[in-house]
Design a protein around this nucleic acid. Structure first.
Lengths: 353, 353
DNA sequence: GGAAAATTGTAGACTGATCTACGAAAATCC
DNA sequence: GGATTTTCGTAGATCAGTCTACAATTTTCC
């Protein structure tokens, strides 16, 4: 194993709890008590043990601690790291987890339900104390099962669940903000891109709620006859494809609620290539307020979900759940509209419809 | 602990190796052998044990396995998840790790060296089998120490290291591609944004190599007198600030090698606000070829580092190292230039100079 | 056909912590 | 001042696996 290169590449063995006990002249149990801040330690002993810990550069093995107690680890499950909104959520999670003494590890699974299941099992295999699932695939039943196995908070899906908590943006209100904004600008033919996944288990998924919110708001604005839901996929290519569909209509819409910034960026790309002026001829609204939306060349009007707060809220709920809460909590965070330069007055056209 | 809500919320206990042994009527050691594919198992017993595993829905605890053997976990350390280039690298890592049977967990630490150290210690505490550090902070000495503690591959820093492997883009060649491209377009006053971090331990950091590559290429193109290195930070705000600095010059450059796409996006934002036309009056080149660069509204000319290959290469090296390799390997991946619409012919101006 | 070698399975120590049970010493009570 | 309670510390089981040493077979060899 050890090559003949001399002693410099020796692996330095980590100090264990036994080493500390030996060094301090106490029992392993005593060191463990100091470590956990448990009852039954005198000030003298505590000081002595802590001095030994420092002297030996001791750090407890999270692995071994996890065997009996908790592993002080939270698992964040993410479907797509490319979406920068995820990292905003994660920032909120991390900040909150830090104050509670938990480490956060992120696992990604972009390729569907089976990969997701594998990733979550991997987290359970490592006895993570709690799971944060960001916009996971699967039915509510799948999530219930996970929630029964370990403390779980689901981000980005509307609850309530039986065995897990949820934190979501108020997608109903978000859609209303968008439609009202466009209607106030004089738009009537306002389309909506609805995401349709491969599996059809869409209970509580944002796409369902946003679509419903869109329809409700259209009705409320007296635009029921103009309701126009285009089904597709919420990524850039999906948005680009949708823009082609819209332009092919005999009577194309003048504005679109794209459902997601990624899709909105695709729509903008499609319109750009078709030579349609934004917002002169067409207004586009996204959802998530990702980084790219704020670029001045893009200046996408979008709905902001205050991701950092959602993240820290979720982490807080998770810690509560780890500490024993059983009643499910379902939280909704109010979104806000960020108006930029992809929305403008409806183009002057035939005034009657 | 259990509230009076009935039996439905019972935690289902996981099957352990003992449960499987009991069910199959063999010893725990035998089950362990089957699990590890170790020598000394008859076909009959193997089949029987595997049947029991399936029957009980058994999954080994990665935690317990890690106590003696390996934890089958790779830790990916990331400085900034907002940068979408990271997720491209991670995709490559994950794909390669999967075939070797390792799980990948990502840890982020955006707030400097001490947070980074904490994160890496957390990974060591969990006995991860190997570490992939993406563009970490710290001196080469810090990295050597980590490499001595556990198998380590560093991404995005130029090697070689003693105790760890490196995978980096050939930043020298990348800078040359940029300068040659701009020079061919007739630009002479080509500036470069150099990142300057808080700590000054920049051995092998991309900013150093890219700056040197820029200078070399300028000299090679006979533009030595025009060398113009602007120091700042490689994020959007840094780029925006740099654009102001450049425009304030008595004799402003006509093109910039921004060092990074994030910085380039900031430069573009600054130029946009100043009403400077791109590429009519000014050409901008980034580095990384992130998602936002490909948006048609942005269309940033950039250097592509083929992140997926870099990621899988790094993972491959890490697995080799885990399997016992000691000699450090230092790899450099060739970059390529993606020409889009932020670069164009140099503006016609005073021909002398 | 008996010695040597290979195969197959088990016992039990070990990993590094937690945590219950218990004994000894000190503090409090009446 | 003896009984009771509290405080402080230890022994040793436990978590869920791995892995070495060894015993009991079975196979191979000459």
């Amino acid at each position: 194993m050890c090559t003949g290169r001399g002693a410099m590449s020796e692996q330095i063995k980590r100090a264990t709890i036994s080493d500390v006990a030996l060094h301090a002249g106490v029992s392993r149990a005593a060191v463990s008590k100091v470590l956990r801040g448990a009852y039954g330690v005198s000030g003298t002993m505590k000081a002595r043990v802590e001095a030994s810990m420092v002297a030996l550069g001791y750090r407890p093995s999270a692995l071994a601690r996890g065997m009996r107690g908790s592993s002080f680890t939270l698992g964040v499950f993410v479907v797509d790291l490319q979406n920068t909104f995820m990292s905003v959520l994660i920032e909120g999670i991390r900040a909150e987890a830090e104050v509670s003494g938990y480490q956060v590890f992120i696992g990604e699974a972009s390729r569907g339900l089976s990969q997701q299941r594998q990733m979550i099992e991997a987290m359970l295999d490592r006895k993570m104390d709690g799971l944060l699932l960001i916009a996971p695939f699967g039915t509510a039943g799948d999530l219930e099962e996970i929630g029964r196995a370990t403390p779980t908070v689901v981000l980005g899906r509307h609850g309530p669940g039986q065995s897990y908590d949820t934190v979501a943006s108020d997608d109903m209100a978000g859609s209303a903000l968008i439609v009202d904004h466009l209607a106030a600008l004089g738009h009537r033919r306002i389309a909506h891109l609805k995401h349709v996944g491969r599996e059809n288990n869409e209970d509580g998924m944002p796409q369902v709620v946003r679509a419903q919110g869109y329809i409700d708001a259209m009705v409320r604005n007296g635009l029921e006859p103009e309701v126009d839901v285009i089904e597709g996929r919420w990524h850039q290519a999906g948005g680009q494809h949708a823009s082609e569909l819209m332009l092919q209509r005999p009577h194309p819409p003048t504005a679109v609620h794209a459902g997601t910034d990624m899709a909105a960026l695709g729509v903008l790309a499609g319109l750009y290539e078709a030579g349609i002026s934004v917002p002169g001829d067409f207004s586009v609204v996204g959802y998530d307020n990702v980084f790219a939306a704020s670029l001045p060349q893009v200046a996408l009007t979008s709905v902001d979900q205050s991701g950092v707060e959602m993240g820290s809220m979720a982490a807080r709920l998770l810690v509560e759940r780890i500490q024993g809460r059983r009643e499910p909590v379902s939280t909704v965070v109010a979104p806000s509209l960020v108006v930029r330069r992809t929305t403008g007055p409806a183009p002057a056209g035939p005034t009657r419809n």
